[in-house]
Nucleic acid binder design. Structure first.
Length: 917
RNA sequence: GGGCGAUUAGCUCAGGGGUAGAGCGCCACGUUGACAUCGUGGAGGUCGCAGGUUCGAAACCCGCAUCGCCCA
């Protein structure tokens, strides 16, 4: 074995072997355990969020696989309608072509080409993370089988009246020319204006003032609304307004929706271009004037001089004209909520179009009930509130998109516009008994999330009744970010209940978002994106700068990003390896909060990999001559096995509760600070001393290899590569058969391993050595210098331990000799450490500075005095003594007694020092 | 406007009615036959502020402040 751990030499080789050997496929006869991967965009690349999520899922998967469950982690990718289509359109644009030049069929073919070309990348990157997904079952949302599932669901929902086509106001993206669901629209505060216009009354008696943030929509106004109780305007309700610039007569109506305090208390009504106005318009039968083209330019509905104007140009022109006419009362600065398409970034326009909708309420009801009743549990629990909040206020889901890339809607129209829905054209003809009439398929495709909603069962072969469905539906847990609870989680629950008659998973583990070191969201335009692969393989500064500034949409950000990158990563990024990255994610995977990715921590976990590596080297070096024969276990052997048992219990507890951070913390602490720091050191005296018997040496060698092998299995779900690599060398030594650690059983708790006596003995040894080390450290005595130690006030058990463990004390504590003070014998001038009631004396002769020792003891004394005072105050309080639980009071009394003994000893010892001066 | 979360050591974060924790960073010493990606010792915090409950609050409750997110 190399002296240091070199991840890059190992990881890919190990993964290839795992995959080729078929270890990732479900096996055995255990209880089924299943996670479906949230399918990433097939043409995308791996980002920190994926890496984090994959780490969590892989850890759970490996844990359950080792526990003997029949475990499936179902992989796959998503066609990501809008995102993918946009990328390919951009590629075409770069060639000077548009999708219309190619036509639908060729364009879609081109997207498939792009998918084949780039589709392997994210899968390759996922492999680098060590993800143990069953690649043999890889699925894509536009595979034939999954597409058939989509059609079946659509047809059935349509036949049941749960999908309908309707003309309604939708969020229209004028750049992408498609409708969007509410969820795909992001609303943000932006600086804008509030324009106050005068609308003349038809009667000629003056005007009303209306305020608007969107002057261009006034060309589509079909009314003015006031509050029914507003005395200022009550008498005007029912009268008419002459709409300026247009000349249309429009009514004044009264509606509760109007807030009298806002602006003038009069609101212009544009029912075809505003969601609130639309609702009010319907209540009052107002006309709906659609004034936009699908590019959001003005159409032929408006006066000729405005036609063809782009919406923001039109805004200027309209304000200018009204101003000229003396109808502009004032303009105020105003913060406006601006809705933008999450993909295009352009302002979304409420737009009247024909779209397909899912009638959601009948589906939402059981989905709410499933969470209320606990059939599905959110972890952490409070995310269920977010879920309920949305589900109670859910709106019908607009599922049609005016795109070419996606599942084409299985609906056909005849020349009269009648709708026929079925699996394909011939099925439709048969179903509706249509003979020779012409049919034309709907041009639209379905929202990407429609197929994602079927993922937990479509990947298992639904609608066929497959073995997989039988075994792996419902899944065990869904692991995802809170940002897609609405997009995806809720919809899977609704469709799962509808089509499988059962929930799609029993638990939903919601993790936080990965942010940068300053808590900022990682984004290309901020230039703060970290690529998980760069953390694994490392990257030099110049490449990192180049990567972060390449292909910027806004060129002016480049220099800023470059500067920040050079500042944060002056030496680029080191190579940390996959295991270190995974450990970092696990450590940060605390519930209910976002994660600032901290480079400092990944370095620490790389060191942990190295620590484990070197511990293994030590164990292997010392177990070459494992033979059979009598075995005797030392107290150190029994102690470490007892401690190991506790960590094992911790791991089961924390991993079952999705607390990867606590699990890691526990096993890290044990491995480094108990196994390496203490046990390996305590094993050396036994193995290297001629005084130990062969049986004792055998006991320690056996324990070394046994505990190490168990640690590897405990750690494997968290850090699969290094544990496998080491295990390959360790297993034969431990006489363990098996080709891979990943299919070995996860360690179980064995109550027999607990050994309170050994734990107490070794705890005593540790305290002894720590006391000596403290003297050494604070007295500046070189670590190499062996010290003479005299015991004063030793009890019988102290004497027993000093005798049995003398070898450990000498070698690990670097103690030259341990002797006891005879009764009545005067102790020499010495530095002191306390071990219970016993004093450890290190004679000073030329070694120790009296003043320094006095300072050191005084410092200890002050500390204990402070503690004593606090405890005395407590016990002096009658209320405490009367009300606190008896064991707490007893414990406090014991502490006081101990403090007092310690103080007495320290004072005595300080007195001794003073005599010397 | 409604809701959720956060505020603990210089930094990143655990914890949680009775003794304040980790990693990194910092200081000092050290090449001891696993590991300098290391070892040993040490410094460092009135747990955001103000009330309340309690014998006892960093923790529970109420309010406030700051930051972040979600929904309107």
């Amino acid at each position: 074995m190399d002296k240091t751990y070199q991840p890059q030499a190992i990881e890919q080789r190990i993964y290839d072997r795992w995959e080729k050997s078929g270890y990732f496929a479900p096996q055995g006869e255990g209880a089924p355990y299943c996670i479906v991967i949230p399918p990433p965009n097939v043409t995308g690349t791996l980002h920190m969020g994926h890496a984090f999520q994959d780490t969590i899922m892989d850890t759970l998967t490996r844990y359950h696989r080792m526990k003997g469950d029949r475990t499936l982690w179902q992989p796959g990718t998503d066609h990501a309608g809008i995102a993918t289509q946009m990328v390919v359109e951009r590629l075409l644009n770069a060639e000077g072509k548009s999708k219309h030049d190619l036509g639908r069929e060729h364009f879609v073919a081109r997207v498939w080409e792009w998918k084949e070309e780039s589709g392997g990348l994210i899968a390759q990157q996922t492999r680098r993370l060590g993800a143990s997904v069953d690649w043999s079952r890889d699925r894509f949302t536009m595979d034939e089988g999954l597409s058939a599932a989509v059609r079946k669901v659509f047809v059935q929902l349509y036949d049941e009246g749960l999908i309908y086509r309707g003309k309604r106001l939708v969020n229209w993206d004028p750049k992408l020319h498609t409708a969007l669901s509410d969820l795909e629209v992001l609303t943000d505060d932006e600086d804008g204006h509030l324009w106050h216009f005068r609308y003349p009354l038809a009667s000629g008696d003056g005007h009303l003032v209306v305020a608007t943030t969107r002057p261009e929509t006034m060309l589509g106004d079909s009314g003015v609304a006031v509050h029914p109780e507003d005395d200022r305007y009550r008498h005007l309700v029912g009268q008419e307004i002459i709409l300026p610039l247009v000349g249309r007569r429009i009514p004044v109506i009264a509606d509760d929706y109007v807030e009298p305090e806002f602006g003038s208390g009069c609101v212009k009504m544009t029912p075809a271009h505003d969601f609130n106005d639309y609702e009010i318009g319907k209540r009052h039968n107002l006309a709906m004037y659609n004034i936009f083209t699908d590019d959001a330019a003005l159409n032929d509905e408006v006066p000729e001089r405005f036609r063809g104007m782009e919406r923001f140009a039109a805004r200027k022109a309209i304000v200018a004209e009204l101003d000229e006419l003396g109808l502009l009362e004032k303009v105020e600065d105003y913060v406006v909520k601006i809705p933008r398409g999450d993909r295009s970034g352009v302002v979304v326009e409420p737009y009247l179009t024909d779209q397909w909708y899912v009638k959601i309420e009948p589906l939402a009801k059981p989905a709410i009930e499933a969470v209320e009743s606990g059939r599905i549990r959110f972890v952490p629990e409070n995310w269920s509130k977010t879920y309920f909040e949305w589900m109670y206020n859910i709106q019908d889901w607009c599922i049609s998109r005016q795109l070419w890339w996606g599942h084409r809607i299985p609906a056909w129209y005849d020349d009269e516009g009648n709708i026929y829905v079925g699996d394909d054209e011939s099925a439709v003809r048969e179903k509706y008994q249509l003979k020779s009439i012409a049919l034309r398929q709907d041009d639209d495709v379905l929202d990407t999330w429609f197929s994602s909603a079927l993922w937990p069962f479509s990947t298992m072969g639904w609608p066929e009744k497959t073995d997989e469905l039988q075994q792996f539906y419902p899944g065990s847990v869904l692991v995802t970010g809170f940002d897609i609870i609405f997009f995806w989680v809720a919809r899977m629950i609704m469709f799962g209940l509808k089509f499988m008659d059962d929930v799609p998973f029993r638990e939903v583990y919601i993790h936080g978002l990965i942010r940068d070191q300053d808590g900022q969201k990682m984004s290309k335009s901020k230039g703060n994106v970290l690529d998980p692969i760069d953390l694994i393989d490392g990257i030099d500064l110049e490449s990192l700068v180049e990567k972060r500034t390449r292909g910027m949409m806004q060129d002016h950000l480049g220099p800023k990003i470059e500067k920040a990158t050079r500042k944060h990563f002056p030496d680029g990024i080191d190579q940390f390896g996959t295991d270190a990255l995974r450990l970092t994610f696990a450590a940060l995977a605390t519930t209910g909060r976002d994660i600032r990715f901290d480079l400092g921590r990944i370095e620490g976990y790389k060191n942990f990999c190295n620590k484990l590596w070197n511990a293994a080297r030590y164990v292997l070096m010392n177990t070459e001559s494992l033979d059979t024969g009598d075995v005797k276990f030392s107290s150190a052997d029994r102690w470490i096995k007892s401690q190991l048992n506790k960590v094992t219990a911790d791991m089961h507890q924390h991993l079952s509760a999705y607390r990867l951070d606590l699990a890691l913390h526990s096993v890290y602490e044990f491995t480094w600070h108990e196994f390496c720091d203490w046990y390996l050191e305590l094993s050396k005296p036994i193995l290297q001393s001629d005084d130990s018997s062969d049986a004792e040496k055998r006991g320690t060698r056996q324990t070394l290899i046994e505990v190490l092998e168990t640690i590897l299995r405990l750690l494997h779900p968290l850090m699969p590569f290094v544990t496998e690599e080491i295990w390959q060398a360790v297993a034969p030594r431990a006489s363990i058969a098996g080709d891979t650690i990943m299919l070995r059983p996860y360690p179980e708790v064995t109550p027999d391993a607990e050994d309170a006596e050994a734990v107490a003995d070794i705890e005593w040894v540790k305290q002894f050595i720590l006391g000596i080390r403290q003297i050494r450290g604070e007295m500046d005595i070189s670590p190499g210098k062996a010290l003479v130690v005299i015991l004063q006030g030793a009890s019988e058990s102290d004497l027993r331990r000093a005798a049995t463990e003398e070898n450990l004390l000498r070698r690990v504590g670097r103690v030259e000799s341990v002797s006891t003070l005879d009764a009545g014998e005067e102790p020499p001038a010495a530095a002191t450490a306390l071990l219970g009631d016993m004093r450890l004396l290190v004679p000073m002769k030329g070694l120790i500075d009296v003043d320094a020792e006095r300072t050191r003891l005084t410092k200890q004394l002050d500390k204990v005095k402070a503690e004593l005072e606090r405890s005395n105050n407590k016990l002096g309080n009658k209320n405490f003594v009367n009300n606190a639980p008896p064991d707490v009071v007893t414990q406090e009394r014991e502490r006081i007694a101990e403090f007092e003994r310690t103080i007495a000893q320290l004072i005595e010892q300080i007195g001794k020092l003073d005599e010397l001066v």
